[in-house]
């Protein structure tokens, strides 16, 4: 296809991605180096029946003018990155100097908002992703051996947790594990502990969020693996049996090689999606015990009365760096494959 035709065909799509994905990334970087204007204060005489008292007020007119002149706020350089709400170099340094033990240091760092969010995000990503792969593969192997009549309905119910809106899915589970919901009450009965609440304990909240993560992503891995299993040739399996391979050996030496590339694909997608974990935290109202990077950004934008654009942007840039680190191995691999094919 000639370059010119190609350009016309790709133009709408490329333009949309350029304007609403690439430009925002630049905009986030610029914004992260600015911070809200300082309040312009004026002193006014407040006169009442008992004489006049001086009072300091925010000069709304001057503030409005300032905002109009510099909508981004004042330049702050990398100040936002290093403040307490983000990388918090000073606080981490202080904790390093004052805390004697590793656990003391770690818990001091964990109390900083950015590191708290980062630790949950990373734990979530690296716990949920392998579990999803494992369960997905087992369910796919199981469904594959079912009689034909049962396959359709099983796939139907399996798709539900994945298709359903993440916020809605997490709410549905949240209501069930609520102390007065059916599962929460059942757990209280089983452990005979009326104060047991999944919401109250930070540790249980983490577990609950990860259970949700596995529940909602397993269907994806299952469907992909299931499709991969259809491509495993019957002849090869039969040949392996004739050669005396047991059931496990057949799975290990015949099935695995066929589904291994799919596992790479699922891992890639899951890493991307789990790293942006956000809706479950809103759905489970878990922000007291677990926050994620996405949630921190959302909270800066919508949480308080004032929108902290600079702070949200700095966290965004750090998140994007995180995504870049996650993706690097994949990109390097693709680059090698591409070069090998060319040669």
């Amino acid at each position: 296809m000639p370059h010119k035709t190609f350009m016309w065909f790709i133009l709408p799509s490329a333009l949309a991605m350029f304007l609403f994905i690439f430009v925002p990334i630049i905009s986030v970087i610029v914004q992260s180096m600015h911070i809200e204007h300082e309040q312009v204060l004026i002193e006014v005489e407040n006169c009442g029946p008992f004489g006049c008292t001086p009072e300091v007020n925010v000069d709304q007119e001057a503030m409005r003018q300032l905002r109009e002149e510099q909508p981004l706020g004042r330049f702050n350089g990398l100040g936002t990155y290093t403040n307490r709400a983000h990388l918090a170099f000073d606080e981490v340094g202080e904790a390093w100097a004052t805390q004697d033990t590793w656990s003391g240091f770690l818990s001091a760092v964990y109390n900083l908002p950015f590191y708290k969010a980062l630790s949950f995000t990373l734990t979530f990503t690296f716990v949920v992703t392998p579990l999803v792969l494992l369960f997905g593969l087992f369910i796919a192997l199981g469904v594959n051996s079912l009689p034909r009549v049962f396959k359709g309905p099983t796939i139907f119910v399996s798709l539900l947790p994945m298709i359903v809106t993440p916020l809605v899915g997490s709410l549905i589970l949240f209501w069930m594990v609520d102390a007065e919901g059916v599962l929460g009450a059942a757990l209280q009965n089983i452990f005979d502990d009326n104060s047991l609440s999944l919401k109250a304990s930070p540790w249980l909240t983490w577990v609950m969020l990860m259970v949700y993560g596995v529940w909602s992503s397993t269907p994806f891995a299952f469907v992909v693996f299931y499709a991969g299993l259809q491509t495993v040739p019957e002849d090869t399996l039969e040949a392996a049996s004739l050669d005396g391979a047991g059931r496990w050996q057949k799975v290990r030496y015949v099935v695995f090689p066929y589904v291994a590339p799919l596992a790479v694909f699922i891992t890639l997608i899951q890493l991307m999606d789990n790293f942006r974990v956000f809706e479950p935290i809103v759905g489970f109202s878990a922000q007291a015990s677990a926050t994620s990077l996405s949630w921190v950004i959302f909270n800066d934008l919508r949480g308080g009365d004032v929108q902290l654009f600079g702070s949200a942007a700095a966290t965004s840039v750090l998140t994007i760096c995180g995504v870049a680190i996650l993706l690097t191995p994949v990109l390097i691999r693709t680059w090698r494959d591409f070069n090998r094919k060319r040669v």
């Binding site: 925002p24 630049i26 790293f275 950004i297 591409f338």
Partner: peptide, 29 residues
Amino acid sequence: GYRYAFWLLMLALVFRAMPHITLVSGYLL
């Protein structure tokens, strides 16, 4: 068949990985 088609797809993959909320914080202001 050109190389830039491959690179566009790779770029799209990187864009796919961007958490939506980071992009949104770029639009808002």
